[in-house]
């Protein structure tokens, strides 16, 4: 299973992980080795098998639509890297006039 540099960069962008140019070759080799493992699955006959998404064969429990959590705003903001006026602060996202 060969990966091109371009493919690797696209995956890294989808995952929003910056990958330095000089680490591309070793990373590519590692990922190709792991992808190589997957080829063993090709031989398995699965046309009659349905996908198993979960080990438990149970239905999802439901609950009353009631508020159970108290307001933890201050508590939760304590861990934020940057906060202003009770809001998470990030670099400007919306284009427009300064």
């Amino acid at each position: 299973m060969a990966l091109s540099d371009q493919e690797l960069k696209e995956i890294a962008y989808l995952a929003r992980i910056n990958v330095k140019e000089d680490s591309l070759p070793s990373l590519k080799k590692e990922l190709e080795d792991i992808l190589g493992l997957f080829e063993e699955l090709n031989a398995a006959e699965t046309s009659e098998i349905s996908a198993m998404s979960h080990p438990l064969d149970l239905s999802q429990p439901t609950r009353q639509d009631e508020v159970t959590e108290e307001n933890l705003r201050e508590e939760l903001l304590k861990n934020a890297p940057s906060v202003q006026s009770g809001l998470f602060l990030v670099p400007k996202v919306i284009e427009g006039e300064e």
Partner: peptide, 18 residues
């Protein structure tokens, strides 16, 4: 954004994530 590590001086939101 909400908790944990954040890189230094992100130039935009994309750079912050990456």
């Amino acid at each position: 954004v909400r908790y944990g590590y954040r890189c230094e001086d992100p130039k935009d939101i994309e750079d912050l994530y990456m």
